[in-house]
Design a protein around this nucleic acid. Structure first.
Lengths: 131, 131
DNA sequence: AAAAAACCGACTGTAACACTCGGTATTATG
DNA sequence: CATAATACCGAGTGTTACAGTCGGTTTTTT
């Protein structure tokens, strides 16, 4: 039950982009956050596909947020980077026991509660905390 | 970010024990919950070491709860069965960035909130829901 | 004595994680 | 127009936890 490094790195990367008005190169972000640039690049590619980030190639290129930082919350980030966000598979995948499983409703409620908490954490809220 | 099958099976096993006043054999529990008996046994051994369950050998032996079902909550179960319960490692393990990591406080708060939710879910509460 | 249970340790296959690397495409700048 | 800086892409790799399986041992009831 752990949030992957990938998601952790992704959040930290987004935080750095949110701090800056300019495009930042991946290398700059990687250095600030002490993350392997090669790996961070993969993550940014995914974040770009998810629409959180935009890029510019060539010299003076880099990455910048494609959305307002208050619009990007942790649930969205995790849903784009984690293989499967829900706490247990029995929620999305069709477990044939689901109708009579005594714990399924409990898992479902917990899952909702956690996701609600994740929605309250935005990139902006983290930036604001670090002023 | 997923709760392991091990923990899910463990919870379901405890639920079955809580339902019954008698000792249940592992095989009975495994059949009711459609879990591999061999695997469930390993889990029960761990639950016994954690003090949630007691066992009796020989014919008419089996397992029973060693604590009142309202005293066993999901946080306790997960902490005994999951390798490491916290959402991110940076909380327990000593990440050298922790003092200046911009997201560490956020993770820490979220982790606490989730654990509080887990404490509210007891074996008894699940039994009661299924009456 | 025999059978029914729990107990124990070693082993195995799979999949996700956390990268790494080599090369390609694009574009600002001199 | 050439070059260098950047993003882009796909394939490959080592490690670890998960999710079991299996064979045998010990205990205890009947």
């Amino acid at each position: 039950m752990k949030i992957s490094k990938k998601s952790q790195y992704g959040l930290r990367g987004l935080f750095r982009l949110a701090e800056s008005d300019e495009y930042l190169t991946m290398k700059e972000v990687a250095e600030k956050e002490e993350i392997s640039p090669d790996y961070l690049e993969k993550i940014f590619t995914e974040l770009e596909k998810a629409g959180f980030v935009k890029s510019k190639r060539g010299p003076s290129g880099g990455y910048a947020l494609a959305m307002k930082p208050e619009k990007i919350n942790l649930r969205m980030i995790l849903e784009s980077l984690e293989a499967n966000l829900s706490l247990v598979e029995c929620i999305d995948e069709s477990c044939k026991r689901i109708t009579d499983c005594p714990v399924a409703p409990t898992w479902k409620r917990l899952d909702q509660e956690v996701k609600s908490k994740l929605e309250l954490i935005t990139v902006k809220s983290i930036v604001d905390k670090n002023k």
